[in-house]
Design a protein around this nucleic acid. Sequence first.
DNA 1: TTGAAAGCGCTAACAT
DNA 2: ATGTTAGCGCTTTCAA
Lengths: 330, 330
Amino acid sequence: MKEKRTSLADIAKIVGVSKATVSFVLNDKGDEFNISKEKQRIIKEKAKELLYVPNYFAKSLRQGKTKTIGLVLADISNPFYAELCKTIQEGLYQNGYNTLIVNTNDDKELEKTLMRELLQRSIDGMIISPSNNIQELIPILHETHIPVVFADRPGDDEADFVGIDNEKEVKKLIKAFSIKPKKLVVLSQHSESILTIEKRIEGTRIVCSTEKIVLVVINLPENQDEINALIKQELDNGADSFLPLNNQVAFKTLAALKKYNVKIPQQVRLISFDDNEAFAYMEPAISALRQPVKHIGTESVDRILDRLKETKVPGKHLLLACEFIARGSH
Amino acid sequence: MKEKRTSLADIAKIVGVSKATVSFVLNDKGDEFNISKEKQRIIKEKAKELLYVPNYFAKSLRQGKTKTIGLVLADISNPFYAELCKTIQEGLYQNGYNTLIVNTNDDKELEKTLMRELLQRSIDGMIISPSNNIQELIPILHETHIPVVFADRPGDDEADFVGIDNEKEVKKLIKAFSIKPKKLVVLSQHSESILTIEKRIEGTRIVCSTEKIVLVVINLPENQDEINALIKQELDNGADSFLPLNNQVAFKTLAALKKYNVKIPQQVRLISFDDNEAFAYMEPAISALRQPVKHIGTESVDRILDRLKETKVPGKHLLLACEFIARGSH
DNA sequence: TTGAAAGCGCTAACAT
DNA sequence: ATGTTAGCGCTTTCAA
């Protein structure tokens, strides 16, 4: 079991040629270097027979390129990021790049650690939806010189960014309620501050202030019983509209509403910022803002690929449009 | 921007010592080699100042270990695999390993290609939930000598496996219907055969045959309209019980049932093999079999870690128990 | 207490 | 048409 892998040198010795010759042939440069067909055949055959697999590290070390992109995500178990992850991985793969994915759980310290690890692996570039704000990340990013693309959550002005305009989208949403809210409850759930969530709240504040809507912003606890109690309290205080800020929070809100037998959309209205496959099948079906996940993914890949070509252009900020899916809950 | 990274040699030259000394110090072996505190301090300081990051490839090349495990998954956008992915990645990370994740979309050819790529990267081990059956994979696995653990979907008897007993679990499910099915419709959706799904179907056949239940097995098309038509037809033919074989298929089935205003559980009963966060919030809440995803993940990690220690034991097959979540649909 | 040097497996410039 | 050789950056044995 522990026999060591066949190396170039092994093949060279057996066939009776030099390592270089073997290297050329196995990298399909045999013709280019005028190596006889016969010898090429023999070498390839032997390589196969000996189950030769090139040592990736020696190769990378020599060439100084790894053909690997690091992908730093907050939570792969959130469908939004799962889809983003999938799209990016596919796009990169089609362009000959591998993806090294790490999951930070929105833990800012862990994020920094993992980013450093990634950097140690000499990745060629990085796509990240950061938990930390950019100031924290700059020192880390400066330890290396690879291109970085921010996806979903922005870095700074000079950095490439692909995402949505959270503030604008949330404003649209509030105006989409079929009955103008008197008292709006905005819900999120996070242990540390997250930029996109803050933007969404910010947008809400602006609209509610000009539209004279009473606004309550709640950061939900972990425990569902506490969540229920919190929501009950708002219900008793006249809350008539709910705006969960991501799909997972939407489920928890819905659970509370269901518990108290609140009729949607008769008694209260609800719109979810962030869609979920299941929303269409619920009773009532949940109206939601669908973010262009796939598009964010493909654009991020395009950005990083551009950067890799050393294109020395200033950072681009790409704001993609969302689609409001009107179902039965608003 | 394109200045090259600081290397050990750079630091050695500046401080005026040899590469070896720097290497010792930076690997915290300074004391072991009796290098003076003062020199250690200077070297560490310079390293920090010059933003030294060790070249991972040189290191791996030298040491012949990569501290990386490859993870081959069928579909990260399926919540089941997303959760599995997350658990495995965390477990591995806590043990000092990185995870290289690839997504195969249940495409058998792609799976083979990606596995080869992974192997080229000299990973130390691999965790895989294969789409191909083991015969196809054996030649690839034989190209290398690393330990492999099969998660969710089994390999062969000699290989380590962590998953569930699909046949047994499905039998339990059929007996869980509140009214004994007269005509049971089992639904799946896959372009190529998948071992776990086949086992589930196999189990169903056995029970239905002994229990004299009429059984219809449907492999759903992509298009939802076609799905609706198919299900309508079965409804007209007296189908009274539905058993979708994963959570994504459950949603599509539910959509069809909803379209024809079929009352659950009054007119028909439904149980989903594979749970989903959203099921609890639907009307009625969907009864489902919850697979021990986290447990499968942590056990897979334990298995591979054992293997990495060269423990030369025969393959273990670990069958974990599922939990039936009785909600309102069965 | 520290340095020199070999070598991990590969590629590519340079010889022949 | 093919071989020789010099590294890529690092670790580690051996020598001083």
